[in-house]
Design a binder for these strands. Structure first.
Length: 504
RNA sequence: GGUCCAUUCGUCUAGGGGUAAGGACGUUAGAUUUUCAUUCUAGAAACAGGGGUUCGAUUCCCCUAUGGACUACCA
């Protein structure tokens, strides 16, 4: 039978976590949970030049927000620690040297300046079978020269020797059989001059050592898959090679190409899971969390970008996703990201979630906006208005006035038609309010209408002003329901305040 | 340029040799709500093109076109 499923998410900690990255985690996670396997987080920090302060912590926080708890990770530890590639540095050299010894790889002494010159000189230069012999490496150079360079501690890299005329094919769980002509790839660097492995070596070595059974990654990796395959073979581990799963890309909504954080800024929507502050520039890139997406909605939306369960259902909890998930229902083509649809998922999740569940998050956005809400009243208010919120932050505008006198009034909608007669009406209505605590909102509404008639006013001509007095704008649930939640005293107070403004 | 991958409404997609090509988002029109949103009803909207195979192709095959990814001592 198949070994226990082990999958890993292996991000490079260089900045914010992109939508596509989260979807890769999601599919990893769903697959692992579905099959009772382990989900591992491995940090691929082999590029010391791209080290970014705080990026790893940020990734951990993102996973946490989404609810993906890794079974093994740099912080949780695990049987295959360490889970940070920089801390595994010595292991990689051993395997690289082994490949050299066995003739599958070689030392290359070319400086980056020499490489650049070569690229300039030869169009579409590739460091491979065609030009290998023209370069400075342990294949082209005589043995004693190689030894001399090594002894002199000349900086070198180790490159894989890609064979010519060999076809590499493998099964991708989403695409089926894929094949490549190996010789078309160049001799990829496996070990850099600083002794760190490149992705190519590290991913193979670590996937092997960590007993990964299924390797999920973005489709952009497809072209380098043959290099990895060769590595698995040369290292003698082919039987342990994970199954490959290359996920379709998430594309820009307009035009074409991979979705990038630039597109978010340009088109006005988030691309990162949570907002990310670049420590170098202080630049803040907004995230779905800060915009007010519930993690459930974010995950649900991501899952549907490239997967469906074959029915017409589009709303799934994480448990349902785990239950229904299957790789053969993942589509092959890239999907353009649609922010409108994303917002729809958000609204649906807010609608279907109970007030009690929503309350903590609502409190949080309230706090950020200087609103304090009494718990009992908050629950009633959430139930009343959650249907009108698209994202959690909408609660500030849609529910804030229940707890705070409006800070702005839509005066343009009342002032032009304001009359003394109307003012008079509200004075009388305040009197009614004074003794209406026992009335239902329907009864109160009846009184309001009756009074309007008495004063020869059209109901509509005073209803809207009344709403604006309480709410500040032309939105919200039925005014008399608002009145009851607010309480008569508060309503009278607000009428008084607004009257001043309307009159002015 | 080369290699690989992909191609059903504007978008996400279902489907699969004979269908009215289904759903959702968005959009349009209407109803409800004396606000706004929700909700409800109805509508417009798609198989990239050309060859095959077949009694019959949107579905299978080939070619073309288009799009994308990759082509670093980055992942």
């Amino acid at each position: 039978m198949m070994d226990k499923v082990r999958v890993r998410f292996a991000p490079s900690p260089t900045g914010g976590l992109h939508l596509g990255g989260v979807r890769t985690v999601l599919f990893n996670y769903l697959f692992a949970k579905k099959h009772g396997g382990k989900f591992i987080l491995r940090i691929e920090d082999t590029d010391q030049n791209r080290f970014v302060e705080g990026a790893e912590k940020y990734i951990l926080d993102c996973l946490d927000w989404c609810g993906f708890k890794p079974d093994e990770s740099p912080v949780a530890g695990g049987p295959y620690a360490p889970y940070r590639q920089s801390e595994r540095k010595p292991m990689y050299r051993e395997y690289a040297e082994r490949l050299v010894k066995e003739g599958y790889a070689y030392y290359a002494f070319d400086t980056s300046a020499e490489l650049d010159a070569k690229r300039k000189e030869i169009n579409n230069f590739q460091y491979g079978h065609a030009h290998r012999m023209d370069m400075k490496n342990s294949i082209s150079l005589p043995e004693d020269e190689v030894q001399r360079l090594l002894a002199a501690e000349t900086p070198y890299v180790i490159r894989i020797k890609i064979p010519e005329g060999e076809t590499i094919s493998f099964i991708d769980l989403i695409r089926g059989e894929v094949s490549f002509e190996a010789g078309l790839s160049d001799d990829k660097v496996l070990l850099k001059a600083d002794g760190m492995p490149t992705y190519h070596l590290a991913v193979v070595v670590d996937d092997y050592l960590m007993k990964i059974t299924h390797a999920f990654r973005g489709e952009e990796w497809l072209p380098s898959a043959p290099v990895h395959l060769l590595l698995w073979r040369y290292l003698g581990w082919e039987d342990d090679m994970p199954k490959w799963v290359h996920l379709p890309l998430i594309l820009k909504p307009d035009g074409h190409g991979k979705l990038s954080k630039r597109d978010g800024a340009r088109l006005g929507f988030p691309v990162y899971a949570m907002s990310w502050t670049d420590p170098a520039t202080g630049e803040v890139t907004p995230g779905f969390r800060e915009l007010g997406f519930m993690p459930e909605a974010f995950i649900n939306m991501l899952a549907m970008l490239g997967w469906n369960d074959g029915t017409e259902n589009e709303l799934f909890s994480i448990e349902e996703l785990i239950d229904k998930f299957s790789l053969d229902r993942v589509s092959k083509a890239g999907a353009k990201f649609d922010f409108e649809k994303a917002k729809w998922y958000s609204a649906e999740w807010i609608k279907k979630t109970a007030a009690k569940q929503l309350a903590p998050a609502v409190n949080e956005v309230f706090k950020k906006n200087g609103i304090t809400a009494e718990p009992i009243k908050l629950l009633a208010v959430i139930d009343m208005i959650k249907d009108r919120c698209t994202v959690m932050t909408d609660f500030v505008q849609q529910a804030g006035y229940f707890f705070k006198i409006p800070s702005e009034y839509d005066l343009n909608s009342v002032k032009p038609k304001w009359t003394e007669q109307k003012e008079e009406f509200f004075h009388s209505f305040s009197e009614i309010l004074l003794g209406s605590a026992a009335l239902t909102s329907a009864e109160l509404e009846a009184q309001f209408k009756e009074l309007a008639q008495e004063k020869s006013l059209k109901v509509g001509d005073v209803m809207l002003p009344y709403r604006i007095m309480l709410v500040g704008g032309k939105y919200g649930p039925a005014v008399f329901d608002i009145t009851k939640v607010l309480g008569e005293k508060e309503a009278i107070l607000r009428i008084g305040i607004a009257l001043e403004l309307f009159r002015a």
